[in-house]
Structures are given as C-alpha cells and as structure tokens.
Design a protein around this nucleic acid. Structure first.
Length: 123
DNA sequence: ATTCTAACA
DNA sequence: TGTTAGCA
C-alpha cells in the first residue's frame, strides 16, 4: 500500500469492496447471485470491482439499514444502472418507497395503541 | 495472504 | 448471513 500505487486506480477485489461498503464478502457474493451486482473476473478467477460497484453496494446497504429487504433494492439498483444519479428517480423505486411508508405508518398506529394500553395499565 | 465454490456440528 | 473446508 505505497503512496503511489494506492490511488483509487484499477479495481478492487471482494475483500476491499466489502470493507469500504461496510459489509462482508459473503454478502457481496450473495447479491451477485441475486443479480444485484455484476462481477468481472480477472485471469485467476477473482472478482474485480470498481468505484461504480462501490456506489451500488453502498446504495444497497443504505436501503437495507432503513429496513428494506434485498428484493426492495432491485429497482434502485436498476435505476442507477440506467444512468440516474439517484436510485430513487425511477417509478419502480418510488413504488417501493411508497409501500414502505405505508407500512411504517401502520406500524406507528400499532405502537400508539400498544402504548395507550400500557399507560392505562399504569393507571 | 486472499479469493473461490459449496455446504452446514 | 456466518463459518468452514479444500483449492488455486
């Protein structure tokens, strides 16, 4: 990792991508199996990724952390692949976002009711 | 040392 | 998703 050779040049292998995206190599291989991530291979068979892949994985991670499942991230991934700077700029993404919002609202209502009954129990 | 695939005391 | 095995 010399000062010169370490400059965001070529590509990175699965280990580095995982580290920079805050996930595991295992998860990245799984995303690939699910068709969410594309992998180019080097002569030795190792997967090679670039900055674009890093952006994509970070997008996926961000969505997962907000409560979406892997399938929910698909439209966002495709959206970015189609050139959009934001994965939320496509109809498919908007639909997923809207559905999640409704789920959250329902959840809030449930929690409020639970809270109310607990307050009663306390007298 | 790192990645690969496949599979699970 | 983690972990591990046996290779390259």
């Amino acid at each position: 990792m010399t000062l010169v050779a370490r400059f965001t040049v070529g590509g990175m292998r699965i280990g580095e991508l995982a580290e920079q995206a805050g996930t595991s190599a295992r998860a990245l291989r799984y995303y690939e199996q699910q068709g969410l991530l594309s992998a180019r291979r080097t002569s030795n068979g190792y997967r090679e990724y670039d900055e674009e892949d890093l952006r994509l994985v970070r997008e996926i991670r961000a969505l997962l952390e907000i409560g979406f499942n892997l399938e929910d991230t698909r439209p966002f991934v495709e959206c970015i692949r189609e050139g959009h700077s934001s994965g939320a700029e496509c109809p498919g993404s908007v639909e997923v976002l809207t559905r999640r919002l409704a789920e959250i609202d329902d959840y809030i209502v449930r929690l409020r009711r639970i809270r109310a009954t607990i307050v009663k129990e306390l007298g």
